[in-house]
Design a protein around this nucleic acid. Structure first.
Lengths: 343, 343
DNA sequence: TTGTAAGCGTTATCAT
DNA sequence: ATGATAACGCTTACAA
């Protein structure tokens, strides 16, 4: 029936320890923070009692006083996919800085209300007095005025992956334009003369920029190039089958999918259409997602080093915390080409 | 150059609002918490100023006073895989309760030091004064005395997925024994008479229990049954190829892999060994992980409803918070058989 | 070397 | 209907 350590007593606190040792709270505080101005004899006694009582300093109070809670919030899509790496990067970087991660997941299920949900979560973060917020915005075409509340409070906000138009803040993402450019270069270099870029539509900045980089480079090189809007990052197989049956698709000898899913879907559609890869058509993806099927051909793609995005986001956050006035910075993580069997 | 809202002034607080309106902090507090004992006229003024100043109550202080921080920590493997669903379940359930999730990821890279890392993270959670902790232990064979510090503090601890021996606390996991039993029943029912269970070794409770359930049911039914220790949840393809070349493997007509990865690996090895599935050998997996390759055969498996594990963990946590004295509870989420092409 | 007092932002309790 | 005061756990500034 009896509890083991703190029988009946309050939680260990400076006060409790002070009473038990017979000194003032200050002496305890000093000792436990490692100040050397305490008599060794007293200090030893204090440390012993603290140990016995399993004292843990209250970080919240520290935050209350210093204005630093050592908590940083991340707000991201509930279906992490791609972002799991970023999350790991964020978490481990924060850990190194002695900070804790408050995670907020925005479910797809909210649909058009996702933005309202995002705001609600941001408000919660503010109430928790987190030191900063790392955000993958649910929308990158929306007017983002409501982020001003965060910024106005002086809470550092770092946006990752999808850049918000008309909103100045720190940003970390992939160098999508360069990625698209290199994709085109690679295909052209491998002899392709009629290119196709499969993208996810106008609304998503990452897709748009990869496509733009690709188109620009292809056109500059004077090769034929088409684009096809797949309507999203995870189009149905039927979509592709339909497309690759059309005559227009017959001449294509190089395809760039703006993400791996699109590229793999194209791969299957090509197989069904009876076109060989990489002999007749070369295919590049983007993202370098883990390939769960060991029997599928290894997709040539680009690694986005997503973990680095997370690391860098934390770094920017810490820099702004140190120096709130400095100009906003955008960091673009370069992609790395990954050889595969499809190109 | 000028900040937009709080130019030069302190953060909005009860005090600031009180001064601005010319009332006491208490009146402001009462108003903003929706008490009705405030004159409507005063209340209106207060609400307006609070709105203008974009006042957000400080949850930390609330926690300091009430002992409830509305923060719950989760400690899980950095490579979520399987646990991403649980994480979503936890996060969304917490959100419904008005709580925030503090996420701690334990990287595989720590190897044998993972436990030390786990302890360190638990300590951090205690310093943050979280209301409770949901933990997927890094080890389930280890002596877990150090969790006592958490329990002794009266911080509810709910363990998920892997049950700790010799440690009493709330637990939520899969009904692994029943899962193994049903797996054997299904195979026997489909006519298999020589079974094989591919498991991950003695150390992991989930694997062990699925195997035990499987073996017990198979033996009770009087069919032939063998077991093979794959040494982990992600064995190399070579491991299986080697095994299926042996004469002992030739008679097997029903295989149960304790997770989907093992089952799929077995599937490939069977194909290489020239044995047809499901005609000659039927294969069952466990876990119902998303199958990323649409061309691979749909694996017959068991859905663990991992999201529910997360939901239930939060429920247990809240129950214990309400009633710290009640006896510990173990909840086993039943699995659901998923038909597939491999059985 | 040690202690006292004030304050961080809020709420519970007891006045007025 | 409103206010004053203490308290939560800790640190900073100032005394002794």
């Amino acid at each position: 029936m009896m509890k083991s350590v703190n029988n009946g007593s309050r939680q260990a606190s400076l006060k409790v320890i002070a009473e038990q040792v017979g000194v003032s709270m200050m002496t305890v505080s000093r000792t436990l923070r490692g100040e050397t101005t305490v008599a060794e004899e007293t200090a030893a006694k204090i440390r012993k009692v603290a140990e016995t009582l399993k004292y843990r300093p209250n970080k919240l109070v520290e935050g209350l006083r210093t204005g630093r809670t050592c908590m940083v919030a991340a707000v991201m899509p509930a279906y992490l996919g791609f972002y799991e790496d970023a999350l790991r990067g964020i978490e481990s970087s924060l850990d190194l800085k002695g900070c804790s991660l408050v995670l907020n997941l925005i479910s797809r299920d909210f649909g058009r209300d996702a933005m309202r949900e995002e705001i609600r979560r941001l408000h919660r973060c503010l109430e928790l007095r987190v030191d900063g917020i790392i955000l993958r915005p649910v929308n990158d075409d929306a007017n983002a005025v409501y982020f001003n509340e965060v910024v106005d409070r002086g809470v550092p906000l770092v946006v990752i992956d999808r850049k918000l138009p008309d909103f100045a803040c720190d940003f970390v993402g992939t160098d999508d334009v360069a990625g698209g450019e290199v994709a085109a270069q690679k295909l052209i270099h491998k002899g392709c003369r009629s290119l196709l870029v499969l993208h996810a539509g106008e609304k998503v900045s990452t897709s748009r920029e990869r496509r733009d980089g690709f188109l620009a480079t292809a056109r500059a090189a004077g090769v034929n190039v088409e684009e096809l809007d797949c309507g999203g990052f995870n189009p149905s197989p039927e979509f592709f089958n339909l497309y690759f049956r059309q005559p227009a698709a017959q001449g294509v000898d190089g395809i760039f999918g703006v993400n791996d899913d699109i590229a793999r879907a194209a791969l299957r559609a090509l197989r069904i259409a009876g076109r060989s890869c990489p002999e007749q058509v070369k295919v590049l993806g983007f993202g370098h997602l883990p390939q769960s099927d060991p029997d599928a051909p290894r997709l040539a793609t680009f690694d986005q080093h997503v973990g680095l995005i997370g690391n860098e986001a934390v770094k920017l956050l810490m820099e702004r915390l140190e120096n709130p006035g400095k100009p906003y910075k955008s960091v673009y993580i370069p992609v790395q080409f990954i050889e595969g069997e499809t190109a």
